[in-house]
Amino acid sequence: MEFALGPALLFCPADRPERFVKAAERADAVILDLEDAVAPAAKSAARANVAASDLDPARVIVRVNAPGTADFAPDLAMLEASPFRTVMVAKAEDPAVLDEFDASFSVIALCETARGVSAAARIAAHDRVTALMWGAEDLIASLGGTSSRHSDGRYRDAARYARSRVLLEAGAHAKAAIDAVHIDIDDVQGLATEAEDAAASGFRATACIHPRQVATIRAAYAPDAETIAWARDVLVAAEGERGVFRFRGRMIDEPLLRHARAVTARS
């Protein structure tokens, strides 16, 4: 099953059912979160809210609690009786656990711990997995750290490594990669810069935590008119060429044609 969502994926706490419809309307897909966004005492009610939801299953991702926790099995039981089949597995570390999901499920594995990032290649190889996502704050917490970013907003090296590792392992197994949330809601420029880098680097989507972030992410993933025109023109020019050729002052070879195809696919 191919990943067909994005580029703006909006988290919504599963214990706030009054927000479900608006979240789904404002983003490309909504992530109904049964994990960190929900207090332990509210987990059961949150599951009931997801089960009762009549959202379009094609645009819903359900984030379940981490394998090995007391809430994982009831989360899975609820999903099996629901129409929702795209599931985000929090703190994925062991690909064998993903065998719990039958072939009807599409799994987004969230590599957000040191063990999860280390196992990213094996997780990406699992046939249920359609995408990998990474998470900065849980990763740093798993290392005993206190902050994923420097004071100027740049990711620390460990976070940058995890981001790159997840992107590369996803790509190596022909799976999609999803970039982490930008937790500073008011930092619009920082989000724009990060999302533009994500799109240019090959991420398929960026997760977000507030509806205000959706437009910024969509704009970052949408190529501008000049870039689209160049991509279309160079692909047309390539039809009459053999191997490397010169186009508008640049030497064009197959990697650049693949870049152009990626642009047209997002336009």
Rank of each mutant, 00 (worst) to 15 (best):
H182V: 01
R212M: 12
A225H: 13
T206G: 12
A229S: 14
A238N: 02
G202R: 12
A200I: 00
I185P: 02
G240L: 08
L235R: 12
R204T: 03
A200G: 00
V214P: 14
T193Q: 11
A205H: 07
A199W: 00
I185Q: 02
W230D: 13
E241G: 02
A200M: 00
A205C: 11
M251S: 15
D186F: 05
C208Y: 02
E194W: 10
D179S: 11
F203T: 08
D233W: 00
V234L: 08
D224R: 13
L235P: 05
R246S: 15
E226F: 11
G202Y: 13
L191C: 05
R242N: 09
R248A: 15
G240Y: 12
S201T: 05
R246W: 04
P211S: 02
A231R: 02
A215S: 14
F203R: 11
I183M: 08
R218F: 01
E241H: 10
E196H: 08
E241M: 09
A199K: 01
G243N: 06
G249E: 14
I217N: 01
A238D: 01
A200E: 00
R242P: 01
R232T: 05
A198R: 07
A199V: 00
G249N: 15
A238M: 02
A180V: 05
A192C: 05
W230C: 12
V234D: 09
A222N: 08
D224G: 08
R204G: 10
A205F: 09
D179F: 07
S201Y: 05
A180T: 09
D186A: 12
P211C: 02
A219G: 12
Q213H: 06
E196C: 07
V181W: 05
A231K: 03
D186L: 08
F245I: 00
V236S: 02
A222Y: 07
V214I: 14
G249A: 13
R242H: 08
H210S: 08
R248C: 04
T227H: 14
I228L: 14
E196L: 07
V234G: 09
A215W: 11
A215P: 09
T227G: 13
E226P: 12
E241A: 13
R212A: 12
I228P: 01
V188P: 12
D179V: 08
I217K: 00
D224S: 09
V181F: 06
D179Q: 10
D186V: 03
D224H: 11
R250E: 15
P223F: 04
T216L: 10
R232W: 03
R246F: 06
M251P: 15
R248W: 03
S201K: 05
V181Y: 06
I228F: 01
T206M: 14
G240A: 11
L191W: 05
L191D: 04
V188N: 11
